[in-house]
């Protein structure tokens, strides 16, 4: 049995795939059609391993997140079965990996922009490599609608605007309270001359 191994390296990320050709599918000798294992090494974090499903989940989430990020949208993406989650974390990005095994704590990896682009490029190399003949369930890079972009970008802005509005209202109303009011005005009685006229 031919066992093939391919490595995709992009600075801080290194992805290694092991597998064999799927002869029933007509794969040639140097093509991986059946994935037996994969290993992802990100500098400064533990080595990740798993099955094809896990790698697919990771690809789904990372590629969708990068697609949104390039359009200026920063939002959380969760894979099917919630195995992989990526969310904005300050100016960085938090990758949360849940193990399918019991009693294993979820792994948290903080990626900066450069590491995220390394990882994205690494996964890009994998999905466009002609030596890998695997079907990935990944959302294609499609344009977003204007309303989706506006609603995703303006969410935080809307919250900030509301916050500013409340502060502005409170500060102006407290300033209004400071304006002195004249309580000691004279309530004059109607003059006699006017009374005489009335009479």
């Amino acid at each position: 049995m031919i066992n093939l191994s391919y490595r995709f390296v992009q600075n801080s990320s290194s992805l290694e795939l092991e597998g064999m050709p799927d002869v029933s599918n007509g794969d040639s000798e140097n093509i991986i059609g059946i994935l037996s294992s994969w290993t992802l090494k990100i500098i400064g974090s533990p080595t990740l391993e798993g099955e094809k499903e896990h790698l697919e989940n990771l690809m789904q989430v990372i590629l969708q997140y990068s697609r949104s990020y390039i359009s200026g949208i920063r939002k959380t993406f969760i894979s099917k079965k919630s195995i992989v989650t990526i969310s904005p974390f300050g100016s960085s990005h938090k990758l949360l990996l849940n193990s399918t095994k019991k009693d294993v704590k979820p792994l948290e990896i903080i990626l900066d922009d450069s590491e995220l682009s390394d990882l994205t490029q690494c996964l890009d190399l994998l999905r466009f490599d002609p030596r890998i003949n695997l079907c990935w369930d990944i959302t294609l890079d499609i344009p977003f609608s204007k309303s989706y972009i506006q609603s995703s970008i303006n969410k935080s802005k809307k919250r900030i605007n509301l916050f500013y509005a409340i502060i502005l209202f409170l500060s102006t109303s407290s300033l209004m309270l400071l304006i002195p009011t004249n309580d000691k005005f004279d309530q004059r009685e109607p003059t006699k001359s006017s009374q005489a006229i009335n009479e």
Binding site: R67, Q121, F128, D141, I142, I149
Partner: peptide, 14 residues
Amino acid sequence: KGGACRLRASLYNQ
């Protein structure tokens, strides 16, 4: 290649 697809998609609106 993947990056070009991403950038292209970001320049269009549905």
